[in-house]
């Protein structure tokens, strides 16, 4: 199972999320992290927003990986959202974003945290993986897609 699949439960996966902007997306993520995992909403939103101000976390091809260090955290957590309508994210290819994987890591960064970020980048660079995600109709299917990667031969 990929490391990223282990960071999310099905309650951390949102399909057809409706948000009008990047800021509202981050607010929704922060709201979820408070409701599901007891993290302070303001801290999560501010940390994610600050990271975006340093530079967009969009990778291109409609994908973004917002991430931030959260002082109140002791383990890495992930949230996946597929947006009903793609939103502007200042992506390098100019395309709007509809696949969002949010990674929240503890303040004390370790090599494992960077490996998770690297795995996320490799995963979404795999066109077949992105196609499989787009076909998922339920949160458990999404989690299985993450868990199975790179079971299928990666390709672009």
């Amino acid at each position: 199972m990929s490391a990223i699949a282990e960071l999310m439960s099905t309650e951390d996966i949102f399909l057809d999320l409706e948000v009008p902007s990047k800021s509202r997306l981050l607010q929704e993520i922060a709201r979820h992290m408070e409701a599901a995992h007891g993290l302070p909403r303001a801290s999560v939103f501010q940390s994610l927003s600050l990271r975006e101000r340093l530079g967009s976390t969009a990778l291109g091809a409609g994908v973004a990986i917002p991430h931030a260090r959260i002082g109140e955290f002791h383990r890495v957590r992930g949230v996946y959202a597929r947006l009903r309508r793609a939103i502007s994210f200042a992506a390098p290819d100019g395309l709007p974003v509809s696949d969002v994987l949010v990674l929240l890591v503890p303040q004390q960064v370790s090599a494992a945290h960077f490996e998770i970020l690297a795995e996320a980048a490799r995963m979404f660079a795999d066109r077949r993986f992105r196609q499989r995600l787009s076909r998922c109709e339920a949160a458990r299917e999404v989690r299985q897609a993450f868990a199975d990667w790179p079971g299928e031969r990666p390709g672009n």
Partner: peptide, 12 residues
Amino acid sequence: MRFPATGMGVEG
């Protein structure tokens, strides 16, 4: 670690 040699890999 390894990244794919694609545009998305570079962005990652």
